[in-house]
Structures are given as structure tokens and as C-alpha cells.
Design a protein around this nucleic acid. Structure first.
Lengths: 212, 212
DNA sequence: GTCTATAAAGTGATAGAC
DNA sequence: GTCTATCACTTTATAGAC
């Protein structure tokens, strides 16, 4: 028993070779995409030899599939918890979602362009692996949304609102190289802008709901 | 003189080999990006041989540079005309810009992901080639914006508004594979959604200006 | 498990015939 | 100008020693 606990501690301190290669692959793939990444880049980044990549993951494609699925899972992790919380209002859920995504994207700024590029070029049926649960309309969010819509019917497709939240939250990260280099916005100024948007986006969305 | 006119007619009817290769390159590069494109793909798409690609353009990289510059130029073409028109109000300029971009992106849906992917991975200093004129603050749009801001000062960074217009207009096209395949939106429904947004986005933006 | 060496296939570019 | 054939190099993947 003591040994197993000590082993666990060791594993946390010293990640296995397999884990080191996988994390190296995540960094390189997420930064450069599938086609521009060479297996040698990943091997070098991991501090090990190229052959070990194939020893643990068989092929570049299989390794990419793992990274892609984990990145997708990471992208929607925590979201179900927020939209299924019976203890928060619709308004609070909106605020929590925007805040969560901005915080997460500040830490992982290249994640959106990685996903968007993959689904747009779609090496194979990668898009089928995205799990936007079809149970989505059974969530607390959906329930509360319908209650609101019953009182104040929207004259527009609700998809517009969903698209606007996603657009205003995610797009700035995708366009950040242009914003920073061409609009003369420093890294710090960009970070501050994103922090401001945590409060602003919910306000804007609420006003959309009122005028629509 | 007559001969030159006839020659021009001929050129329009039968595009030169060079032109056919360039247009094939535009289609493939804009769809798959630089790294995932093979010169053989372009040759095949053009209906000619691989060797002709190098005969006319020397290298894959040089050909890509041409396509990238032309795509960027196309992306901002017509915009200067709209924002520099002294005969339209600020509100009209906003409506014209959104309408122009949605119409253009309906015809060229893969253009944004091509540009965004390029500037995010940035093979070389490609980002330097983007010409967002530093004379931008001397346009009619900038003048009219300042007049408005003088009357009703904005408590937020104006960049937020610019980002929102760009986000709500462009992002849906970048995310369209997910919207279509995962949210069950048909091609026709997506097109209609974008048409609706021509009217809606200016309305939303105006409400942002009022509540801010 | 990890490495070196190398096979096998892919890709950009060119030579040379027509 | 356009083609076929081929070179030169890169890249993925594997064999085999340790």
C-alpha cells in the first residue's frame, strides 16, 4: 500500500515518457496544426527520439487523433456543469460561461484556431468526433431559455444569440495576431481588453434580447 | 489597335495557362492552407503538369505569396470606398460594411479561415504584408466617429465595438462546419441566417453604443 | 524501453525531349 | 510552352542492437 502511494507521487513528479511525448505533441499540434507538424518536431520537443513516438502511438495520425479528441473534450469540459446548474439564473449562466471561456482561452489562446482549422480542412471525419450532446435541449439552460421565450417571444432565430456569444468571446483570440500587430495593441492591452469583455458581453447580449 | 482589342477578348475567353494555374492554386491553397497543399494537387486542379507550376512561378512558396497577397487585397477591397464616402452617415457605413462582407463571404466562405490560419502559424513574416493602412484615422469613418464620440463619449475602448462587428460578421463563416454538422443547420438555413444578420448586426451594434 | 540506422514513401524542383 | 522522367531531399515508419 505504502509503495503504491509512493509510486503515485513519483508518477506525478516524473511524467512517463509516453506522457511527455503526448504533451509535446499537444503543444506542437495545437500551435502549428496537423500538416505543418513533423514527427521530428514532436520528438525533439519531448526530449526523446523519433522512434519512441511510433513505439507508443503507432503513427502521427493516431497521435493527432488522441490530441484532437482531448482538446475537444477540454474545450467543452466544465460547460455542462454550468448550463445544468439548477441554482443559477439564465443571466448568471451567461455570465459564468463567458467568464469561463475567456479565462480558459487566455491560458490556451491557440486552441480555437486549432479546432477551427481542423474542422474546416477535416483530414477525415474528424468533425464527427465533436460531441455537442444532442441532449443539449434537456439542460437547465434550455429549460430556463424556454421559460423566458414563453414570456417574451423572440422574433428572431435564437441561434443568432448563441452565435453572437460565441463570436464575441472566441473570435478575438483567433484574430489576436492581427489585432496585436496591425492595430498596435500590446499583449497587456489585449489581456485587459479580454478581461473587460467578461462584463461587457453579457450586458450586450441582454440588450439584444430586449430589442429583438 | 483592332488587333489589341481582339487580343483582349481572346484573353478573357481563354485564360492563359499561367492564369489557370494561379486560379487552381487559389482554390487549393484557400481550401487547405499552405502546409497541407501539395504542388501536385494544384497542377492536377489546373489541368496541367507539375513542371509548369515551377516554370511560371519558380516555387510553391512564391506562388503562395502571390495568392496570399491577392486574397488579402481582395479581403479589404471596396472597404476604403465605403469608409471614405463623405455622402453616407456613420450608420449607413456600418450597414454597408456588414452587407458587403456578408455578401463577399457567402461567395468566399473559406477566405477567413485561410487568412486566420496563415497569420496564426505565420510561415514567415506574412503578417507584415497585411496592409491595414495607418492612414485609417484620416478616413471619413474616423472623422464621423470622432464627431459622435464628442457628443456622446464612450466609457469603453472603441476597439470593443470594432471587434464585435468583425466577430459577429466573420466568425459564423469560420465556424460554419460545426454549425452545419453539429447544430443540424442546413446549407439553405445557414444562408438565410447570414442574410438576416445583414440587418440585425447594425441594430445590435447601435444598441451597444447607446447602453455603453 | 530507448536508441541508431535505414527502409519506404512522399514532395518540391529540374533536366531535357518535343 | 508543355510534357515525361528523374533527381534531391524530406518525412513517416520500422528493424534491430543494446
Amino acid at each position: 500500500m505504502e509503495n503504491r502511494i509512493e509510486d503515485k507521487k513519483m508518477e506525478q513528479q516524473l511524467p512517463s515518457t509516453e506522457e511527455k511525448i503526448k504533451e509535446a505533441a499537444r503543444r506542437v499540434f495545437t500551435l502549428k496544426g496537423y500538416a505543418a507538424t513533423r514527427t521530428r518536431d514532436i520528438a525533439e520537443e519531448s526530449g526523446h527520439n523519433l522512434a519512441l513516438l511510433n513505439y507508443y502511438f503507432r503513427s502521427k495520425e493516431k497521435l493527432f487523433d488522441i490530441i484532437m479528441m482531448e482538446n475537444l473534450e477540454f474545450f467543452i469540459r466544465d460547460v455542462l456543469g454550468i448550463i445544468n446548474d439548477a441554482g443559477t439564473t439564465l443571466e448568471q449562466k451567461l455570465e459564468l460561461l463567458v467568464e469561463h471561456y475567456i479565462d480558459m482561452l487566455v491560458q490556451n489562446p491557440t486552441l480555437p484556431i486549432f479546432i477551427l482549422n481542423a474542422v474546416n480542412t477535416d483530414p477525415k471525419g474528424l468533425i464527427d468526433k465533436i460531441t455537442i450532446d444532442s441532449l443539449l435541449d434537456q439542460t437547465q439552460l434550455a429549460k430556463q431559455w424556454k421559460e423566458m421565450a414563453a414570456k417574451h417571444p423572440l422574433p428572431i432565430n435564437p441561434l443568432h444569440i448563441f452565435l453572437n456569444v460565441l463570436s464575441m468571446t472566441v473570435f478575438p483570440f483567433v484574430a489576436s495576431p492581427i489585432i496585436k500587430m496591425k492595430l498596435g495593441v500590446t499583449d497587456d492591452a489585449f489581456q485587459q481588453l479580454m478581461q473587460e469583455r467578461k462584463k461587457l458581453i453579457p450586458i450586450w447580449v441582454k440588450s439584444m434580447l430586449q430589442i429583438s
